[in-house]
Design a protein around this nucleic acid. Structure first.
Lengths: 291, 291
DNA sequence: CCATTTACCTGACCTTAGTCAGGTAAATGG
DNA sequence: CCATTTACCTGACTAAGGTCAGGTAAATGG
């Protein structure tokens, strides 16, 4: 590995560590230790079981226990035995705890806002940050079949439409092109697969079927920040597996040569070019794969 | 400010905080507290005066003093009164201290290497990290006149040549085009201005003069990671100021329309287009500015 | 020259973080 | 049913981080 690359990484770490230190300092101004604040935050994020908290925060049983007692004494949380296993305990924020949690959230938001406000071209900076976020959190990326009308799917589809419009220099309207297909991209006819990192949509692909052995792959998209990580292949694999499970034996798709990354992926994954099978104006490449 | 942007920033912070925490943990394996390790590191980086250390690490006098005594007791540093002000004290690493410092450096390097090794497309990730580093450390960017043959200048020039070759689709050879001009880009004829962040070159521009009132601006370059921050304008302003100080009254330059960001900057800064004044093959735009 | 300031040190003290050895109550598994 | 395991708690302890009130020696500024 190049020493110059290592230096660049270390410069990055140093620059960001300063920002992170500043955020943690701002947390201390609420008269509570960083440990307590972190536990409160984790509970607010939904880690309510004591065992989940322990795993998430990587804390010793004794230490966590004492931090919980402290928050309890402050009236911020309540802990009760879990109904189905009374050895385990579940914590819940009291109304006061919720307020306090929200204050910390607001502090984090303000901090983020202040840093971003210093920059004229926020989009450019955030695009770079997204690339780093996705790369560093690669292990947490989740691939799942979701409903075509779910919020995550909608986010993906809107981003897909925006990118298609930009790259093909046209106005791609999901309403016109998408809604009629809704039931065909849902079980049992078809499916819709999404890759995401938390609430952040990273990619999608739909399988549009009609109950027969032939189905169509549509809406294949990878977020710019998530490219070059091999997600496209994983997403397509997941879609092909889902199609097989729906007794589909042949998949086909149409695309445009402008979307060269996608076309090259399809080729690498064993798709072959076939004759035009529709008269849509925008696609100029048609492909097929037998499962 | 958009809530979505804030969320993206916060996701970024979280992802990176985990990496940074892991690095600090690896420091603890050497049987020394993080505080001591940080002080040793700072001394190794060149913060030798006790007051500099205090400012850099933001430590209380008492705490720093005790950490220094600890390192002294380990035989890693020596502290002596400063000759010109015997109240102040200067620390120096002993040979053993140097070795220990280098071990920490190696740990950081290994950590960086391990993280980067997990990524197929390291260049892409590092480019994004550079954008973040530069944006977050904007206040530390330094503009200075340097010798045209200095290391920093050479780094800039090589990057400049590489980018020119790429964007104009030719092989731009500094050796042929640069070396004959060396003395003309040095005082008293001309100058060479560099923008940098530590050892990281962010941009450059040369003023090539011959002692007369007319000089030429050449080698204007801004690192990709440093774009959209307004550095080009600051760099050009610095170059124009330096030219004035050298009694230059008119600057001119040639460039290529492919380098549209530069051309638009020159126009915004009051440069006007003039007739071709040389017969070089690559430039197609010629400009002038009276100081 | 001497009061004041500056730079650093020392000792006393406190909080936080973290570890570990028990202990209790509930669940589990023959 | 009972030994064992699991989930959590408590108390004792240590190390590290951090604050503060003096104290000393050197420099400074009328």
């Amino acid at each position: 590995m190049d020493q110059d690359q290592i230096t660049r990484f270390r410069n990055f770490s140093r620059a960001v560590a300063i920002e992170i230190g500043a955020l943690e300092d701002s947390f201390l101004n609420r008269g509570r230790s960083l440990g307590s604040a972190r536990v409160l935050n984790a509970i607010g994020l939904g880690y309510e079981d004591v065992s989940d908290l322990r795993a998430f925060l990587d804390l010793d049983t004794g230490l966590l226990s004492r931090l919980l007692r402290g928050l309890e004494a402050e009236g911020l949380i309540e802990t009760n035995p879990k109904p189905d296993d009374r050895r385990s305990r579940v914590t819940t924020l009291t109304p006061m705890g919720v307020r306090e949690f929200e204050i910390y959230e607001a502090l984090s938001d303000q901090r983020a806002e202040r840093v971003l406000a210093r920059h004229a071209d926020v989009r450019h900076l955030l695009d770079a940050m997204d690339v780093v976020t996705v790369a560093l959190s690669r292990e947490d990326i989740v691939f799942e079949e979701v409903d075509y009308s779910s919020e995550l799917a909608t986010k993906c589809l809107n981003a897909f439409a925006a990118e298609l419009s930009r790259r093909l220099n046209l106005i791609f309207d999901l309403k016109k092109s998408g809604d009629p297909e809704l039931s065909q991209m849902q079980h049992p006819h078809g499916t819709f697969v999404v890759a995401s990192l938390g609430a952040m949509p990273l990619g999608c692909v739909g399988v549009k079927g009609n109950g027969g052995p032939l189905a169509e792959v549509k809406r294949m998209w990878i977020a710019p920040a998530a490219r070059r990580l091999g997600l496209g292949r994983r997403l397509m694999t997941k879609a092909e597996d889902a199609a097989r499970a729906l007794s589909i034996t042949t998949l086909r798709l149409d695309t445009n040569s402008t979307l060269f990354e996608a076309v090259s992926l399809y080729k690498r994954m064993g798709w072959t070019e076939i004759e035009r099978f529709n008269d849509d104006p925008y696609p100029d490449i048609f492909m097929e794969k037998h499962l």
